[in-house]
């Protein structure tokens, strides 16, 4: 089993956290994991991305040419990474931030558009849009279990933010529900 997941969007949207949570969850399940973020000036207001690899065997390259899954939180990220996704892969994207340009769709991958911003607003905190997308991804691509992700969130969120865990769990569940 080898999952290679790219998570991309604007800096500040929490795309790095999506990848880190997946990495923690994989580790908790006893798998091999690696997480590699983009770094540098592009992160200040620009686009950020990270690559998470989850595998039952030793991990070779922590950077990947053709991811098995993509979480895209903005249009430039979808444009950049969609063409690289492996046929049969999973693409979860924030519909409200991506204009539904038909050229941006592929029929050989599973495309899942989520109104993450709106759902997050309804949950009372637009910051959890990333966790909604994470829920959808985990349900659709199953790199790790939802329970492991819940545990991982406890490790990713600093202890002083643990009052936000119920909100994050709700966001995770809403994301998962969207994927039939």
């Amino acid at each position: 089993m080898l999952h290679e997941i790219i998570s991309a969007g604007f800096g500040g949207q929490g795309v790095l956290l999506v990848g880190q949570t997946l990495a923690y969850a994989g580790m908790l399940e006893g798998k091999e994991v690696s997480w590699y973020p983009s770094y540098g000036p592009e992160m200040r207001g620009g686009t950020a991305n990270c690559t998470t690899v989850i595998s039952t065997g030793p991990i070779g390259s922590p950077v990947v040419s053709n991811p098995t899954a993509l979480v895209a939180m903005n249009q430039p990220s979808l444009e950049k990474f969609l063409p690289t996704v492996k046929p049969g892969g999973v693409v979860v994207y924030d519909q409200s931030l991506v204009s539904s340009n038909p050229a941006l769709l592929r029929s050989d991958v599973k495309m899942i558009g989520v109104e993450a911003q709106q759902i997050a607003a309804r949950l009372g905190n637009s910051k959890v849009a990333n966790i909604i997308l994470l829920g959808a991804l985990v349900k659709a691509a199953e790199p790790v279990s939802l329970t492991a992700v819940q545990e991982a969130l406890k490790m990713v969120l600093p202890v002083r933010r643990h009052n936000l865990l119920p909100l994050n769990y709700a966001a995770l569940a809403r994301g998962a529900e969207i994927v039939a």
Binding site: V33, S34, W35, P37
Partner: peptide, 10 residues
């Protein structure tokens, strides 16, 4: 190198 420094692994 930059990758090794920035990446996370268990």
């Amino acid at each position: 190198d930059g990758v090794l420094g920035q990446m996370m692994e268990p």
